[in-house]
Simulated scan of single mutants.
Amino acid sequence: MTISTPAIPAATVQRVQTLRETLREHNYAYYVLDDPRIPDSEYDRLMRELEQLEAQYPDLIRADSPTQRVGAEPLSEFIQVTHDVPMLSLGNVFNDEELTAFDQRTRERLAQTAAIDYIAEPKLDGLAVSLRYEAGELVRAATRGDGTVGEDITHNVRTISSVPLRLRGEHQPRLLEVRGEVIMPKAGFQQLNAHARQHQEKTFANPRNAAAGSLRQLDPRITATRPLDMYCYALGLVEGTDLIFTTHEQTLQQLAAWGLKINPEIKQVNGVQGCLDYYHTIGNKRNALAYDIDGVVYKVNRLAWQTDLGFVSRAPRWAIAHKFPAQEELSEILAVEFQVGRTGALTPVARLKPTLVAGVIVSNATLHNMDEVQRKDIRIGDTVIIRRA
């Protein structure tokens, strides 16, 4: 359906429509096919442009816009699951100023002048999953899907050793629904790809794709061979317990007591400066972590304040993701040259259009050998994704 509003420039109307169509296609590739076509940083830029245009021209906002929903439709091969409590995504900030503005808005909505306590945690680069326990037993695991309806992946999640099939400890609830992230650690990812290359099978582009592909296997015996892990980070629903929680930190401590894995890097911080200190500390140790992260998540610690702050259409007002500078960007191959090594071996090297990646200008990339060039069908003029390791 063509959008038409007389007071809005025609070029703007067309740009909004183009952005929506482009984002829908990338949503489909990323969430449904598990085959991302562009880096996350490029997707974020397109989404922010659309958000800004819709904010400038509110009459253009439509219920089916990518800005008004969480994800995409699940595949039909899996049984669909309706979440009792929606699994929402998070808004993003990309610099200190945007984080400061988020903190200020939060304190203003709460009528608080003093610094607020936040729970800070690494933003894991995996797949969001919901676990449902009844009478202490794992009865269902589901993907986030579109936030309201996901896919039943219980048979695959049961193969993950870090996910308890039965809760432990006291005060177990009659019903517990907990959210977390399924990841593939870096070492396991490298081993998986090495095995695939050895058997001339398709390799995965990154640990997130490997984790997503592993969870979407119809045969759990395949998933059981994949080195998956899961960290839990939030309660979705809890019924039938005498426990009363007043802070997010308390809920995490109780999840750990029930045998669920919690990320050891999670920390309570005070105010925006505490958030920034944590962000820089985690950023400095990012490459040493056993898993990929792409930022930090901050959540208001006091649960009553979370309730007071509520939600917008896509995300809670009481939480925000602080993204790291992109480690993946699009570039163009300008030329291919050959370097002679000490042993006389020739190594093809791509000369790239200079591109800023994670704060560094990248203009060269090794292509390893001619077999790799032929396998990937690399040609001058190709648009490529470059990733700073």
Rank of each mutant, 00 (worst) to 15 (best):
V163A: 13
K202Y: 02
T281S: 06
R387Y: 08
V296K: 00
K299D: 07
D229F: 15
K376E: 14
A205H: 06
D294A: 09
S76D: 12
Y278F: 08
R24F: 14
A11G: 15
Q217N: 10
A365K: 01
I386W: 03
G359P: 04
A72T: 10
N193R: 11
I153W: 01
R15D: 02
L124S: 10
N287P: 04
P74M: 02
Q172F: 12
H280L: 13
V81A: 00
T100K: 06
Q327M: 14
L352Y: 05
E249T: 08
Y233V: 09
E42L: 02
A335C: 09
L367R: 00
Y298L: 15
L33T: 09
E54G: 05
H280V: 13
M184Q: 12
T5G: 10
A212W: 03
V149R: 00
G188D: 09
T100Y: 05
L309P: 06
L352W: 07
T347I: 09
V182H: 07
V13K: 15
Y133E: 08
A210T: 02
R166I: 08
I333F: 01
E42P: 07
H280C: 02
P348F: 02
Y57H: 09
N27L: 15
R314V: 01
P325M: 08
L33W: 04
E49A: 02
L346Q: 07
Y133Q: 08
D59N: 07
R158N: 03
A315Q: 06
P264Q: 01
V32N: 13
P354C: 00
R107P: 07
C275N: 12
Q306V: 00
D96A: 13
K376P: 00
S161R: 14
N287H: 12
A11D: 15
Q339R: 13
D103V: 03
E108N: 06
A115K: 07
V182L: 03
L235D: 01
V362R: 10
